[in-house]
């Protein structure tokens, strides 16, 4: 028995403890979402009743459907586009030698370390003008916010991808070039298929990052219909946190669905992608 505990038992003990820790806030959220009273003060850890009243109210009282669509479109477009921009840059950094390469790589890391929210003042000024000139990419639009998010496309993710690309043998693209492929063909036909694991990781990280992004979106989206989930749900509990708590929890659970789905879909790539990039830093 003691031997079993030393070899396997402690593993279950740690696992169960960690699962309890990771689940109890989530159970609380589910309980609040099902709570017929829908208030924070009446919510217990385990559900005391089951009702879909909160869910129904969420769609009736707020623009939740719009928020959801906005979030999916913005996070989806921004993460795919930034993944692509980042991969292009990582390809150049990994495969080509040019003046300013190391400086550029370092600069990418350093720029991201500047406190982002202070840039809001400037970005607000820039987009005030942009909204005047081209309202279709100005405030309260999908594409304006996507453009803004693309500003952060090159950064830590470029490093992750560059690290991964370094592990893809260069002989592969060289032999393809010998066979007459252009550098564009090498990129799309040889490199792109080989880097799916890191694309999965970076895509997921970018998606989670964008769907959770609050600061910029909060300044950018003021029109109730144009808000994202983060901005809209925050507004629900910013004023009346007790009464709207049930609605808020339904909203949070629904927000988790795309992430969890993407996660399950990409899971087999993720572990290998994260660490093989990390080795090279």
């Amino acid at each position: 028995m003691k031997r079993w505990f030393m070899r396997v038992g402690w593993r279950h003990l740690v696992g169960l403890g960690a699962v309890a820790f990771s689940l109890f806030p989530i159970v609380f959220v589910i309980s609040a979402a099902l709570n017929p009273l829908g208030t924070l003060s009446s919510t217990e850890l385990l559900p005391t009743g089951a009702t879909f009243r909160n869910a129904a109210q969420l769609f009736e009282k707020t623009e939740f459907g719009h928020w959801y669509l906005n979030s999916i479109v913005i996070a989806g477009t921004a993460s795919v586009a930034s993944m692509f921009l980042s991969l292009l840059a990582a390809y150049a950094f990994s495969r080509m030698r040019f003046a300013g390469r190391r400086v550029g790589l370092l600069a990418l890391l350093l720029i991201q370390m500047f406190p982002q929210f202070l840039l809001i003042v400037t970005i607000f000024l820039i987009f005030t003008d942009i909204s005047d000139f081209w309202p279709s990419v100005g405030f309260n639009t999908w594409w304006g916010l996507v453009l803004l998010y693309l500003g952060g496309a090159l950064g830590v993710n470029t490093w992750l991808m560059k690290g991964f690309l370094d592990t893809v043998p260069k002989e592969l693209d060289e032999s393809a070039r010998m066979d007459g492929a252009s550098h564009v063909q090498v990129f799309f036909r040889i490199v792109l298929p080989l880097v799916t694991p890191i694309l999965a990781v970076v895509g997921l990280l970018a998606f989670i990052g964008t769907i959770n992004e609050f600061l910029m979106a909060n300044v950018f989206l003021k029109d109730p219909q144009s808000k994202t989930l983060a901005v809209g749900l925050y507004g629900l509990v910013a004023g009346e946190r007790n009464n709207n708590f049930g609605l808020f929890c339904v909203g949070s659970l629904l927000t988790a669905i795309p992430t969890v789905a993407l996660f399950q879909f990409l899971q087999r790539y993720i572990v290998s992608g994260l660490t093989s990039g990390a080795v090279k830093g």
Binding site: G15, A18, V19, S22, L23, P25, I26, F28, V29, L40, I208, I211, N212, F214, L229, A230, L233, Y234, V237, R241, F245, F248, C249, G251, S252, T255, A256, T259, V260, F263
Partner: peptide, 19 residues
């Protein structure tokens, strides 16, 4: 199950923890 907290929207969970 261990990965679930990572998949939940962090802004929302921060507010839940606050409460």
């Amino acid at each position: 199950l261990l990965i679930l907290p990572y998949a939940m929207p962090s802004f929302a969970m921060l507010l839940v923890w606050r409460d």
